[in-house]
Write a protein that binds this DNA or RNA. Structure first.
Lengths: 121, 121
DNA sequence: TCCGGTAGGGAAAAATTTATCACTATGGGT
DNA sequence: ACCCATAGTGATAAATTTTTCCCTACCGGA
């Protein structure tokens, strides 16, 4: 795993939260798990654009950080299911709020980014 | 400015939000501006670890995205003040919630990261 | 034996973000 | 002319994250 060179600032809650959950896919991941996609295979299909590799990595980090738990069933083919822990569930309201904010803001962002020239200020 | 090679997924509110606000400092930045640090100089002093360069870059992006506004006073030395727009203010409750979550989660994260060996699963 | 589906990981490239350093510009004071 | 403080930018290095490609392992069926 990658060894951090710039230390985390534990005095800032925002930095802590970003460290745990501030990556491209983790919010979506937690969201989809909450919505019922428990198996890695389901998550890959549910989340548009994610790859198996990143999924595994993020799931592993979320698990280590204690936001999701994992159950392995001794079946064939192998079945693994992830679920939110209490800490993970405590993020759901935040995730929902951020998601909604993003959807509302989307059109404005698109407008700004898709004009070649910078907006006249 | 950096030219994105992997496009944004506008169908996912979470991705949109991350694009606008998911960087190391932007949450802190908006938070500090809301708390009254209006000038760049104040922000550098208020935010532990940020550099002038990144501050300028993030302020510029936030401004382009319409989350903060900017006022230039023709004084000497030059005085510039930033303020939250309506869109920026709409993020404050979220930021506060995330900050609080991070502070509550901090000890657990620290525990996990500061033991050399991986926790026994 | 080879192939299927499942879950997981190593290594390196590519993408992206952040840090570092060195500038520009303004106008006042010494 | 030089130094101060302010705000801002360009170029590049360094750090970090994400992608891509390929391999392991398990076990059942053809």
């Amino acid at each position: 795993m990658y060894q951090r060179k710039i230390p985390i600032d534990y005095s800032c809650g925002l930095n802590i939260a970003m460290e745990v959950v501030g990556s491209k896919w983790k919010f979506c991941l937690l969201d989809e798990i909450a919505k019922g996609a428990k198996r890695p295979r389901d998550l890959v299909q549910a989340i548009n654009g994610i790859t198996r590799r990143v999924l595994q990595k993020d799931l592993r980090e979320l698990e280590m950080h204690g936001l999701v738990g994992k159950t392995v069933y001794a079946e064939v083919p192998l079945r693994v299911e992830y679920h939110l822990t209490t800490a993970g569930e405590s993020l759901l309201p935040l995730i929902a709020a951020i998601d909604q904010w993003g959807l509302e803001f989307g059109p404005q962002l698109r407008n700004i980014l898709e004009r070649k020239a910078m907006p006249v200020l």
